Amino acid sequence: MSIFKKLRNEYVIWHANRVKFPEFIPSSIVRKKVAFSGRMQKVGFRLEIYCIARRMKLTGWVRNLKDGSVEAELQGGKVAY
């Protein structure tokens, strides 16, 4: 792995770990498919989604689509506010 890729990944992980989440009470399991489109920074976007999902105790996958958008399918406890 190049030094630049390593530094980029470390920055993305650091940034994702700084996101603040509201406290919530987990409930029933929900699965959602999400599409991200429009102008977004491509470098590290999937890694950031992965880090945030892991912190929220979500499972699933994230992938790039041919049209440049990003698709994710996530599963976890339903948020109750």
Rank of each mutant, 00 (worst) to 15 (best):
R55N: 12
G38N: 08
H15M: 15
E73P: 03
F24M: 02
G44H: 02
G68Q: 05
E73W: 00
E48W: 05
A80W: 05
Q75N: 03
R46P: 01
K32T: 13
N17D: 14
I3Q: 14
G68I: 11
V79L: 05
L47S: 13
Y11A: 15
I13D: 02
A80R: 08
I29Y: 09
F21A: 01
K20S: 10
E71W: 02
R8M: 13
V43I: 10
N17K: 14
K33D: 13
R8C: 11
K20T: 10
V79K: 07
W14N: 13
K78S: 05
S27N: 12
L58Q: 09
F45A: 10
L65A: 09
W61Y: 14
W14H: 12
G68N: 02
V43Y: 04
N9I: 04
P26H: 07
I3D: 12
C51W: 01
V43G: 04
N9T: 11
K42S: 13
K66M: 04
A16D: 04
E48Y: 08
Q75I: 04
H15V: 15
M1P: 15
R39S: 09
S27W: 00
F36M: 03
E10Q: 11
P26W: 01
P26D: 08
I29V: 13
Q41H: 11
Q41L: 00
A80Y: 06
G38K: 08
N64Y: 08
L65W: 05
I52W: 00
Y50A: 14
L7M: 14
F21Q: 00
G77K: 01
K42Q: 14
G44K: 04
C51T: 14
H15L: 15
L58V: 03
V30A: 01
K20A: 08
F21E: 03
D67C: 10
A35M: 13
L47A: 12
K78R: 12
V12Q: 04
N9L: 01
K78F: 02
L65Y: 06
R55A: 07
M56D: 02
Y50N: 11
Y11E: 12
V43T: 15
Q75G: 08
K32Y: 08
M40R: 05
F45G: 11
I13S: 10
V19L: 10
R18T: 10
V34F: 07
L74A: 09
I52M: 10
V62I: 10
D67K: 07
R39V: 09
I13C: 09
V79A: 13
M56V: 02
M40W: 01
D67Q: 08
E10I: 13
K6H: 09
T59F: 06
I52E: 02
C51M: 10
S37L: 04
V30D: 02
E10P: 00
A53Y: 00
P22R: 04
V12P: 03
R55P: 08
